[in-house]
Design a protein around this nucleic acid. Sequence first.
DNA 1: GGGCCGTACTG
DNA 2: CAGTAC
DNA 3: GCCC
Length: 559
Amino acid sequence: MEADDAVDNSRPKKRRRVEKGDANEAIVIESSTESEPESLSSPRSNLIGTTRPNPPAINLSLTPELPPAPEYDDFTGDSIKVLTLEWYLDSVKAGVLLPTKNYVVFEGRITGKPNPLIQSPRKILRRENLISQAKGDTPPRGQPLYKHGPRWAISKSPAQPPRLMHQTSSEHDRAVALPPLPPSLCSIYSCQRSTPAQSPNADFIAQLYIIKHARKLDRDDRGISALAYSKAIASIQAYPYTLTSPEEVARLPNCAERYAEIFQEWKETGRVQEVQQIETDERMKSLTEFYEIYDVAEKTARQFYARGWRDLDDVISQGWDTLTPNQQIGVKFYDDFKEKIPRDEVERIAAIVLRYANQVREGFHMVIVGGYRKGKTMCGDVDVILSHPDEDATDHVVEQIVWNLAEDQWITHRLTVSTANSERGQQTINWRGGMSKTRGRGFCTLDKALVVWQDAELAKNPDPGRRNPRRRVDIILSPWKTAGCAVLGWSGGTMFERDLRKYCRNVKGVKFDSTGVRRLSDGTWLDLEKGANDLLEKEKKVFEGLGLEWRDPEERCTG
DNA sequence: GGGCCGTACTG
DNA sequence: CAGTAC
DNA sequence: GCCC
């Protein structure tokens, strides 16, 4: 019946061996949005989900009137002090840097900046990162926020000889004031701050990312430990200055002792022991390889390992029949799915989806969300949101669209199709009953289809010279009334989205998800999008309605 | 010391 | 229900 | 691992 569910169950012959060097490519921090979308973002139809106009939103009104941040040369200059952790902990407690006198373990001069990239072994970071490193620690968006200039500006000046060795504490205390915390970082909610893809601390973040990944794979703590790392990373990612000291780390939200510790180690030695262990851990390598199979996550990865399997070939040769249908697809297109998708291809694919949607019914609006909208030059998959101003036009259309696309060979497999929404069609929009149902068709969830895509034309006229890599495409159908919520819900990094929900719950007393905003108390649906007549405008209205300052999608890169 | 986003699908 | 994905 |  289904044209597209014929998952070819034949086990792949001998899998093309993956470039081993790529094994860790997930670690790469996207480092190129600045060269960027100007050319792509021109309002070319309703295709492109990027809008330019908004100036970087930085709330200066909150800028505290802090004393000038003067000479912390001692900590940015060319001398290195190794201090005990006690010094740090005591300083945190005191709220100010204590004199180091009684805590110094070692002091010495360095002749060159430690370059962790060079020292840390191979392959983790790609060339772009080396380049961005070479470009220097420039904060992502020009203008210093503070007239005294951020630390990175000052640290360039010729370092004075460290003169804090034998100083009195009062002199010293003044000397180590940190640059003011950017106002946006005062919020514990990442949806309230700007988190660009670029970070002056990308190298440090890369270290944390490796630990996070390892925690996720080898601990059975429901991902709690990894979650902690994700939050810390999200905070640091939003910090526009080069971090220079443990306490500068520790004052960031979600970054406490542990992260100050890691930072100190990294800063002093140019590496982090735990990271090095992880990198040489064979078990981690296997787990990572398994984890990169679509529909295999940490539990299954560990399970595979426990069965004695060590790489993908073991999975294929020893466990093919035990795999779920989706895992089989994941294995089959292992290399394809790991491959990133360039923006122009994302656009081409999206345009085809839109065309088919409009074939089913004229007048669909679309916005490309996901990594594309966050400005990534290479995307992991294609996510599009479709909506139609006519109330009930979105009913059951996913199936229709997917069917047609499959018939024409654009779609080769369907991973999941969720029709919960169309199924229960008339349900009221309030999840706690009562109240008006806003007449007629209400939606509790979105219809969506996760499918495997190919270039149908190329498939029909194969060209031996051209590959036809399969792509994962997520097609989401949203009812018009709440399409702004859908766009917002699909255009941010994971932490951005989690914090958005948390913020809504704790601060605004509402429940946000991609199907709408509802009052927590009685479940009544709140229409925040009234009056907007395109998807991006609707998204803006949701920001306003939630009392949030606008953030460009490129500033929602919380990972 | 307890909680950490929330929901739908699949097996 | 557990596991996965978004 | 951090935060309330």
